[in-house]
Structures are given as structure tokens and as C-alpha cells.
Design a protein around this nucleic acid. Sequence first.
DNA 1: TCCGAAAGTTAGCCTAGGCTAAGAAGTGAT
DNA 2: ATCACTTCTTAGCCTAGGCTAACTTTCGGA
Lengths: 150, 150
Amino acid sequence: MRRTPAPRPLPPAEDQAARFARQREADRTATAEDYVELIADLLRADGEARAVDIARRMGVSQATVTATIGRLQRDGLVETKPYRGLFLTDAGRDMAQAAKARHELVVRFLIAVGLDAETAEQDAEGIEHHASEAALQAFERFLAARKAGG
Amino acid sequence: MRRTPAPRPLPPAEDQAARFARQREADRTATAEDYVELIADLLRADGEARAVDIARRMGVSQATVTATIGRLQRDGLVETKPYRGLFLTDAGRDMAQAAKARHELVVRFLIAVGLDAETAEQDAEGIEHHASEAALQAFERFLAARKAGG
DNA sequence: TCCGAAAGTTAGCCTAGGCTAAGAAGTGAT
DNA sequence: ATCACTTCTTAGCCTAGGCTAACTTTCGGA
Ligand SMILES: [Mn+2]
Ligand SMILES: [Mn+2]
Ligand SMILES: [Mn+2]
Ligand SMILES: [Mn+2]
């Protein structure tokens, strides 16, 4: 006689608050992750990472890039040589590498569960910032199992 | 002899820019989605949705809730009767319902791929805002197949 | 060498989403 | 009816991340 799908009770307020707080934290680091990842990609592909190119690829004005780079510099992630491009610090390189690994894992995973490549690329750009270590490990396991099992 | 995992070339700048732009768009709507979802949950569970409770559950100050509710009202999603709680407009109810369905689908999916329930709950809170319709459909298919196949 | 185009910065503006502190306004129990 | 408590709003502040317009600096080709 049950018509509705069993309304789950609300989680304890503190738990829920903690989740939202971690959420906000992830949002705050997302921009930095995308920038350093892009900078690393440009360095690899072009040998240099120019602010103009970042602006073009991020779909954002050069002024915005200047401001954001300022924050990344403040946070010890990048160094700049004006008219000579951007460079990653050790911390920046670490973050870039982690971001890239995560990004590609999420893309592979989304494709593996049946998403088309282009949409996977699109969605991964956001999902990557919200997948915990545990989630990434689950994605890895899933990919490994699928490869093994066939 | 290949040592590195084949460096994928950078996507066309315009494509990449479009992805980031959609990303930013999703970020902008995320707060509204979480609020209306919570309001709907509170209405169901408590019969009313008070700003205080939203503040507690969002882990945010009451002043922040007032401001955010103001935006939701401006955008035609909620109505307020001071000291009598919050109510959803038709548009708000629609958004809440969609948000809730998405949220629960993402949780179920994450659990299905091997994530523990608590982490699934946590990660879903962010991932839900970045999963496209196509991704959600892929998640549904995956769950259906798994249930069928065993 | 010079000079226009490209690259980068600066100034000034905006919104979202946070915060604290203080005050106003209901509510409910005595 | 009163009054303490709770709820809500207001004021004033902050940062991130956007924007345009105008300016400065560098680069490279003629
Ligand atoms: Mn991203
Ligand atoms: Mn990425
Ligand atoms: Mn959410
Ligand atoms: Mn949600």
C-alpha cells in the first residue's frame, strides 16, 4: 500500500552542516586546481603558459586572469615572469599533478559507466573537485574490475 | 619503450572555455538548489521550514540565510511569512523535486560503485550540481543493469 | 630603429556568499 | 498583560571571482 518511496529522515543537523562546509571548502579550491592544471598542460604542450592563453582557455578576461594569478602567487602556487609566462612552484606542480590525475580518472570512469566522451569531459570539470579520495579509489577499483572481468 | 601515458593534446580553446563557462554556471545555481531542497525536506519532516533551522543545517549564520533567502525570493523560488517559516513557489517546488531526485540518484549510484554510505552522502552534495542530464541517465542505466544482472 | 600589435596591468565596478554585532519583532509561558 | 527568549533583520565588513575601459610595456617585423 506504500505509494511514496519511503521518505528518508533528515540527517542530524551537525552532520549535514559538516557536509555543506566541506562542500564550500571544495568550491574555494576549485579555481586554483583548474588554473594550475591548465598551466601545467600549457607548459607541457607549448613550452610556456601565457596569461592570454589562460584567459582564452578559461573563457575569462585577461583582467580576471591577472587577479586570479595574483592569488595563486600569494598562495605560493605560481611564479610569474612578465611577458615570459607563468611557472609553477613545487607546491603548484604537486597540485597540478594531483588535479590532472583526478581529472583523467574521473573522465575515464564516466566513460566507463556509459557517458559519451564529450559530456564526460564537461562533467568531469566540475565533478573532479567534489570526489573524495575514497570516491577516487572506488572509481579506480571499478575500472580495474571492469578491465579484468571484461 | 613508452614511459609516459601518452599526453593527450589540449582540447580546442573554445571547447575548453565553453566547459569552464558551464562549470561556472552550475556553481551559481548550486546554492539555490541546496536551499530549496533543504526547505522541501524541512517542510515534509517538520511541517515548516524556519530560517534558524536552515542556518543550523547549512552550517551558516542566520544573517547569511536572510541574505540568501532574499535572492531566492527575488528569483521567484520561495516566499516568506516572517516568524511563520518559508514556503516554496511552484518554481521552487519544481527545482526542489529535481534537486532531490538528482541527489538521491547520485547517492545510490556512488554506493553502487563501491563507496561507503557516509562518503557517498558527502560527495553527492557537490557532485549532484555537476552531473548533466546525460550523466544522470547513465547512472540510472548503470543501476538498472546492476539490479537486473545481479 | 621604430612603431604598431600583442601582452599585461590597473582602476573601478559588480554580485554571491560569507562573517559579527546589534537591534527589532514575534511567541509563549507565567 | 508582561517579559524573557527566540527568531529574524539590519548594518557594516570581507573575499573570490567576474566585468570593461584605459593605460603601460614588450615584442617583432618592416
Ligand atoms: Mn575543474
Ligand atoms: Mn580539471
Ligand atoms: Mn548540494
Ligand atoms: Mn543536495
